[in-house]
Design a protein around this nucleic acid. Sequence first.
DNA 1: GATGAATGAGGTTTCATTCAT
DNA 2: CATGAATGAAACCTCATTCAT
Lengths: 217, 217, 217, 217
Amino acid sequence: MTSPVLSLASSSRSTCPVSHAKREQVLAGAEAVFLECGYEGASMSQIAARARVSKGTLYNHFENKAELFRALVDKLAREKLAAMFQPLSAGEEDCLTLLIRVAEEFIRVMISPIALGLYRIIVSEAPQFPELSDMFWQKGPACARGFLTDWLRRQDENRVLEVEDSVFAADQFFALCQARIVHFRRLELPVDCSDEAIGDLARRTGRAFLKIYGRDR
Amino acid sequence: MTSPVLSLASSSRSTCPVSHAKREQVLAGAEAVFLECGYEGASMSQIAARARVSKGTLYNHFENKAELFRALVDKLAREKLAAMFQPLSAGEEDCLTLLIRVAEEFIRVMISPIALGLYRIIVSEAPQFPELSDMFWQKGPACARGFLTDWLRRQDENRVLEVEDSVFAADQFFALCQARIVHFRRLELPVDCSDEAIGDLARRTGRAFLKIYGRDR
Amino acid sequence: MTSPVLSLASSSRSTCPVSHAKREQVLAGAEAVFLECGYEGASMSQIAARARVSKGTLYNHFENKAELFRALVDKLAREKLAAMFQPLSAGEEDCLTLLIRVAEEFIRVMISPIALGLYRIIVSEAPQFPELSDMFWQKGPACARGFLTDWLRRQDENRVLEVEDSVFAADQFFALCQARIVHFRRLELPVDCSDEAIGDLARRTGRAFLKIYGRDR
Amino acid sequence: MTSPVLSLASSSRSTCPVSHAKREQVLAGAEAVFLECGYEGASMSQIAARARVSKGTLYNHFENKAELFRALVDKLAREKLAAMFQPLSAGEEDCLTLLIRVAEEFIRVMISPIALGLYRIIVSEAPQFPELSDMFWQKGPACARGFLTDWLRRQDENRVLEVEDSVFAADQFFALCQARIVHFRRLELPVDCSDEAIGDLARRTGRAFLKIYGRDR
DNA sequence: GATGAATGAGGTTTCATTCAT
DNA sequence: CATGAATGAAACCTCATTCAT
């Protein structure tokens, strides 16, 4: 309520550097604790301790627990998710090679601790924080979908593939990527996550996708 | 209030009939609250209130919150999940019709409040309760996978489909089923869930699967 | 409240034999738990479990926890304490031998688990249950004091000892008996409790007492 | 309320002055409640109320009930017991006068509310908190024993008394001091505690002790 | 802005006691 | 009379949040 006013009044600029450092420190602690314990399971004391900061400092920078959580998801989505999904862009490879590469990278990203942790916490808090689901989706998978959609449209125009609804086709591609490994990891069920297993899954995914949308035959 | 009546009705068996009714009452309250608030977000007081039972009664039937949670997931998995996944069995339809029907039923089950709520809570608590992930998987999706695997093997033998790894093919089928609608519902993102939308998705899924594993052409 | 009425109404005699057995069973459980955990530390559930009896049975036989405790102390004092302090009676030995024997027996009794446990619980609950302190004292140490007082008076009359106030002299004797070993055991402090140590202490106690009240020199 | 004022008064030292005042406030409440109700009988709510402090504050200063109890006994032993047993030191009086004075002071100390309350709670919790028994003994009676042991040794060297084992002799002296009055007070049994009664007991104790260890026939 | 002590509501759990069977 | 499920008060403890320094 009053904190935005106070902060504007007492800092001539919107983000003073020293304060910014503490804010990042807090967010780092929050990341560690929220991803490990979930939203309800995390306590402000734990976060303060992990951030090596006093509890009061938490409330100097964030109005309450929910706002701190929102800020964290916002930051992770904007910074880390974006960085993780960036490599999933088109190159000069041939069709199958590109699909396999993207599948492999997507799988690796989705089972990385951060994306997995974020997925868990966001799915479980979706009813309480629907805006965060959206943020996660927009900055993460939707980027990959956007890129793939564009690429698919080009392949369709170039008559390499035959893709009527390129958005849906992209959804199917990423759905196929989540078969088995990603799905099992989310449930913490035992599954082979070796490089070979991931490569194999990516190859099968690429080939299956080409069978659906390939123009040959 | 009404439990003595119920207990009289069910007192044909020896094991404590009164107690069994209350136990079910407690589990009903737990179902409502856990699925709504998550494991950490649910309080034993809420559960007691929702079950119209005193807090002490909770502890007469379950050692602690974690055990109550385990018992609930166990019950839901055994009773409700099993019932939900039962209709997903083979019939006499032709290949595409069956795939579409199964896809549609699977999608409907996965976005039902119970399966969705269970998924949320189980994914978020998987690190703390790994055995429940397993229970959920075994009594739910794994059943569907088992049935589809068998059916695919038969189609392969009958030379209707060409399926080398029928287990993986089943995984791909159910992965495709979760594209878009199921995925978005988990994130509480807005998505068209109408019968038409589901039917359409099921049809596209069935056709895509046939393209991957069909023998014709 | 109503239980005494009910019990009077439904049992023609005051103590039916089957009931008496259960009552003893309850008291046995209460003895184990109260002596181990103290009055506040003991729970009626623990007692019921240790007695292999339902919690309801506790309340059929005793109005509440305090009454059960009173009944237990009463029983222990009347039965066990009395039996323990009985051997402390006069014999035909010469003066010093008798004193040493009585000292030794008294020390052994006071550090026995039952007497020690009773002492602990009674001292700590003395403000709440003053009547039990009295019971303990009367059935325990006071018996020993009574016997020794009589014996001392006879020795005075026979001019073997010179004891003006025989009651006080007995108090001093038993106070000397509690030096070191008994005292330390009550505090759970490490102390040599071997037969030799007890014998040695008893001898020193007897000799010291004779120095105070002996007529020779 | 008043604590900020107090804290200003004592803020000359660096270590958190506000906190120290509250900590003492908590310990004062704990002293009142623990000595009155015993360890198990005392509740953290009672203590908070008696200390005029919130329940949370208790846990800011002490990890849990057991630690608060330990801290209290530690403080009482170090501060109050030490102060109570300090006057029991040697003076220039003649032998009997000194023994009588020490006996009287020891008796008065042992029946003071604090020493009596501490004895009750420490004896009853000795199995659970053996280290507190030790603390109590070291800071309390053991000091008196130490002083008397030294004095007895000197009397032996000066041929005033004949004391072979001065430590044991001291134990006997203090055991004699606890005859009757101290013993009865612990059990809350009625006993004359008037100054005359105490003086009389002290005189009898001093004289008896001299009979045991005096050199003059 | 940073601190961390203080707060009190509310968390999980235990308890003595009651009562229908 | 025995049972043990049910109760709700109260136990210990944690939490998000506030505020004086």
